[in-house]
């Protein structure tokens, strides 16, 4: 696998999520990309049932690595396991229970263009499947060190996203000279998922206050 960068594409004013996704898909297709199927990255959150210390564990699945489950603790420790891990966690209900309404999922189209893989996905949160934003994953396959190809990736992304990225995201910046791992991709997704959840929580609080 190559260097992966996940970014959040802000919704332009007056445009819905679906319209923005369509626009981005059109742009990448105009560049000459070919559709190569769909992709899903989902995240389920579990909370420890022990009174102290209260731990949160996120279990993520990435369709790019279909036989793998990534379990990430709130401390940042990542366990990369076989996808039978889900059954194991199911049996550990007494210790780790799934958080209600906390499932996040990114779904969308997967494209290939030369040595790049581009995934344009919309993020939905909870059981209500409320749209939260657009995440774009760009992978440059021939390279394993972000520091060596960031300039190239930036140039490529500017081609269809415009000037929304000036510098590498913080997660990549900290690991410019490290070889990338599959867990790095899901970690980037998780960062965004946490942000979306926080924003959703704040929105809920505001609504409750207004109702009172």
């Amino acid at each position: 696998m190559g260097v992966v960068c996940v970014i959040n594409f802000p919704l332009p004013e007056g445009k819905s999520g679906q319209q923005t996704v369509d626009m981005l898909q059109k742009r990448i297709e105009t560049l000459g990309a070919t559709k190569t199927g769909n992709f899903v990255v989902d995240c389920e959150t579990y909370q420890s049932q022990q009174p102290a210390p209260q731990r949160v564990m996120h279990v993520l699945h990435n369709s790019e690595h279909p036989a793998t489950a990534f379990a990430i603790l709130d401390t940042g420790t990542c366990l990369v396991a076989d996808n039978t891990f889900d059954q194991l966690i199911h049996k550990l209900k007494a210790f780790y229970a799934p958080k209600k309404n906390a499932k996040v999922e990114t779904k969308g189209q997967r494209y290939e263009i030369g040595d790049f893989i581009v995934k344009i996905g919309s993020v939905v949160l909870g059981q209500n499947i409320s749209f939260k934003g657009i995440l774009i994953e760009v992978e440059y396959c021939p390279c394993v060190m972000p520091g060596e190809c960031w300039g190239l990736m930036q140039e490529f992304m500017q081609g269809f996203l415009g000037n929304i990225i000036d510098s590498p995201p913080q997660y990549i910046k900290d690991r410019l000279n490290n070889a990338v791992m599959p867990s790095d991709t899901v970690m980037q997704y998780l960062e965004f998922y946490n942000n979306f959840r926080k924003a959703a929580g704040q929105q809920q609080q505001q609504q409750q206050q207004q109702q009172r």
Partner: peptide
């Protein structure tokens, strides 16, 4: 020169 100079301009090189 960083994944070879070729690769920095590599997008063009590939396409």
């Amino acid at each position: 020169c960083g994944v070879f100079h070729a690769s920095v301009k590599g997008f063009n090189l590939s396409h």
